[in-house]
Design a protein around this nucleic acid. Structure first.
Length: 106
DNA sequence: ATTTTGACTTAAG
DNA sequence: GCTTAAGCCAAAA
């Protein structure tokens, strides 16, 4: 199986349910490469599958919104997430309430 | 094939 | 709490 790490990341990102968000490190770990958070972010920047991958549901480990086009794009991303039901803590996502739980429970 | 870069993360000051 | 430094992975030049 010649599964590209990149494709796996895209699948994981697209698997994030609405109203929840995942951190880059979390996505990287689910993709099978814990520690590749930087690479994950790069794939989003490339955004080859932006039409399939909701990269806006991927945030930094501290819940801060990063990237998404340029500076001002973050405002759009924040608003979009709020509309999806994600809880916000100032300019950061309330991971305590809206971080995605790939496994049930926790 | 080597070097640089990038939407990261954690630790330390 | 914020800033700086080092570590980490994968892709593009």
């Amino acid at each position: 199986m010649t599964t590209l790490f990149r494709d796996t990341v895209y699948e994981v990102a697209s698997a994030i349910p609405k109203g929840s968000v995942a951190t880059y490190g979390q996505v990287a770990a689910l993709a099978g490469r814990p520690g590749a958070a930087r690479a994950v972010g790069m794939f989003m920047s490339k955004n080859k599958d932006s039409n399939k991958v909701p990269c806006h549901r991927v945030v930094a480990s501290n819940g801060a919104l990063t990237g998404y086009g340029m500076g001002n794009g973050l405002s759009t991303k924040k608003t979009m997430l709020q509309k999806e039901g994600v809880q916000f803590k100032g300019e950061k996502v309330d991971l305590s309430e809206s971080q995605w739980q790939p496994k049930k429970g926790r």
